[in-house]
């Protein structure tokens, strides 16, 4: 317990120091992106890592959060924070809609249904031009704080809060029930666990968190186009969760950090960059199926 406290305090200190250690505007931007990716990876991990639901549509909720908050601010003049609350709510509701499929479908069927869900969301963003401006995009979006360090503190602070809450949740009896559904739905039902309810819960919370991450994205980039929420984004989030170690708390965080910074560090390699990314993803799945967390545990066991 006290060891956890120490880790926690050290992480907070490192987070506080980061924007001053890495002080160029470009790298501060990457830090913000990284915090956002951590949020996304945490949200997806709750659904696939703990509840075992193959969800390839997480990019849709990210996009909903981004579009709803931006449109409310730009077209209706809402206050950013109010708009963010509405956006999170909208994403959560849409999560419930996808959960309706998850209740009836399993495994690959759910994977494809969620993929279809993301494609439809993307197409709506492209085609509903009156509202979303379609592929032309929305420009000149302001972040809630213009100073990159402040924006980083905000998003990272939210990421830490979300981490702590989810960590509590998965250690609690709720976590037991979600894992039970992941391991075997029929047995879970035989113990009185209402799988429809808890799947809906996981999808809704996961979607809401992704929507929350989405609220900060447009202001950070300054523009909003549908392509940012292509299904490829779902794959990227999935990669973060897997590479880090799904079904663990710290894994997706590490995965998000590594997969945010790795492509940046590989920029020198030009087109080979994404190739390396592809190879890395395949190799991780093949040789360390539990991701970085498992690799670390194996290493530690060997050193003992």
């Amino acid at each position: 317990m006290s060891a956890r406290r120490i880790y926690f305090v050290v992480s907070i200190l490192v987070l506080a120091a980061l924007p001053w250690l890495i002080a160029t505007p470009y790298w501060r931007g990457i830090l913000v992106l990284c915090a956002m990716n951590v949020l996304l990876a945490l949200s997806l991990n709750l659904v696939i890592g703990y509840t075992g639901q193959l969800n390839l549509g997480q990019s849709a909720f990210f996009g909903i959060g981004a579009y709803v908050s931006t449109i409310l601010v730009k077209s209706y003049g809402w206050n950013f924070w109010l708009a963010a609350v509405a956006a999170v709510g909208a994403a959560g509701l849409l999560g419930l809609a996808l959960a309706a499929f998850a209740v009836r479908l399993r495994g690959h069927y759910l994977a494809i249904a969620s993929l279809g869900f993301a494609v439809i969301t993307y197409q709506v963003l492209v085609n509903w031009e009156n509202v979303t401006q379609g592929v032309r995009g929305i420009y000149g979006i302001m972040p809630p704080f213009s100073h990159p360090a402040a924006l980083f503190y905000l998003v990272a602070g939210i990421a830490v809060l979300v981490y702590v809450l989810i960590d509590n949740l998965v250690r609690s009896p709720v976590g037991d029930s979600l894992r039970a559904i992941r391991e075997d739905e029929v047995s879970a039902a035989s113990l009185g666990i209402n799988r429809a309810l808890w799947k809906a819960f996981a999808f809704c919370v996961g979607a809401a968190i992704a929507g929350l991450a989405g609220c900060f994205y447009p202001g950070f980039v300054g523009t909003l186009v549908p392509d940012a929420f292509n299904i490829v984004e779902s794959f990227t989030m999935m990669a973060m969760v897997i590479v880090g170690g799904m079904g663990t708390m710290i894994g997706p965080v590490l995965g998000a950090i590594v997969l945010t910074f790795l492509p940046e560090l590989l920029r020198g390699f030009g087109e080979l960059r994404l190739m390396i990314y592809g190879i890395a993803l395949t190799l991780v799945v093949l040789f360390m199926p539990g991701g970085m967390v498992q690799a670390w545990m194996a290493l530690r066991a060997r050193l003992r």
Partner: peptide
């Protein structure tokens, strides 16, 4: 390994690899 997710992810990795190899 009787796992639905991992082979799927691995093929996504292969897909990214192939696309970008061709791009290069």
């Amino acid at each position: 390994r009787g796992d639905e997710l991992r082979p799927l992810i691995a093929t996504i990795g292969v897909s990214v690899l192939l696309e970008n190899a061709q791009l290069a």
